[in-house]
Design a protein around this nucleic acid. Structure first.
Length: 275
DNA sequence: ACCCATGTTCTTTG
DNA sequence: TCAAAGAACATGGG
């Protein structure tokens, strides 16, 4: 779940639930997700008040009243939750932050434990340390073209590289390329200015649509490629997987691996490069 | 039992 | 130095 729209949705949730509150305690169920010693995290958080939230790419930032930052990265399966009674805690809560005023616990949930929790001196310092590019919702078309337009490598892995622009993940890139009608294996330096404009427009469209639906992909428009990924296993069989292109109803969506990642393409909308 | 997976990072190979 | 490929991480779900 945790690509840019999911993280933005978590951020808004945390903003409502936790900003203004003081952290009374930190519960660590599994220290594996900590990128710093547990004692250090606790010392940095307990008694501090949360004053704001921020986001850069897939990273969520909780600003403390001393200016330091609690950084949450959700890996592949991270999620945010809240509970009052420990008996009602959801599965896979790895770390929970007890909030003094409301008595609620803010939960960092992560079955697969690829997520990480850390402290940083500032959002800027963290972004610099991780060499993160500009946020995918903030980058301009010109910046995007300047960053990748000269590269002679396959497009999709470039768009997934957080050092170039931050926030795009595997399914979003596929949907962006589908909406922009560009094949993921095109070399970046072969894109026309028109295609860069389309790429940028599609990025904004996919991200803002996903955020508007709070990243609930089942609510995404039917012309989104995400419905072809077969995630929706709980739906009725006739609507669980959209096998065909929403624009070419007789053309089957094709699955392959690009840069080692599962990749979905409409062969008609996104013609494979010849060379 | 086996295969797949929304991310990141490191190693190996070319 | 760069880019591509592969592996590793750790685990649940189909």
């Amino acid at each position: 779940m945790p690509e840019l729209p999911e993280v933005e949705t978590y951020r808004r949730f945390i903003n409502e639930l936790a900003v203004g509150q003081t952290i009374a305690a930190v519960r660590v169920n599994d220290a594996h997700v900590l990128a710093l010693p547990e004692a250090e995290l606790r010392a940095g958080l307990v008694g501090r008040r949360l004053v704001a939230t921020h986001r850069l790419g897939k990273n969520c930032f909780l600003e403390l009243d001393n200016g330091r930052i609690l950084v949450l990265h959700f890996g592949m399966t991270g999620d945010i939750g809240a509970y009052r009674d420990p008996a009602d805690a959801p599965r896979f809560v790895r770390v929970a932050f007890a909030l003094e005023d409301s008595g609620l616990n803010l939960a960092f949930i992560d079955p697969r434990k690829f997520g990480r929790i850390r402290l940083a001196e500032s959002v800027e310092a963290y972004g610099k340390a991780k060499k993160l590019g500009p946020d995918a919702l903030v980058i301009t078309a010109a910046e995007l073209q300047a960053k990748i337009g000269h590269r002679k490598t396959i497009l999709k892995p470039l768009l997934l590289n957080q050092n170039l622009l931050a926030g795009l993940g595997n399914w979003i890139v596929d949907d962006v390329l589908f909406q922009a009608k560009i094949h993921p294996e095109r070399l970046a330096n072969t894109l026309t200015p028109k295609e860069f404009a389309a790429l940028h427009r599609a990025t904004q469209h996919v991200l803002s649509t996903a955020i508007r639906h709070e990243a609930n992909y089942r609510e995404f428009p039917l012309n989104f490629l995400i419905h072809s990924r077969g995630w929706d296993t709980s739906a009725a069989p006739d609507q669980s997987v959209h096998e065909y292109c929403p624009r070419h109803l007789k053309t089957r969506i094709e699955k392959s691996y690009v840069g080692g990642r599962a990749t979905y393409v409409c062969p008609k909308c996104q013609p494979r490069p010849t060379s």
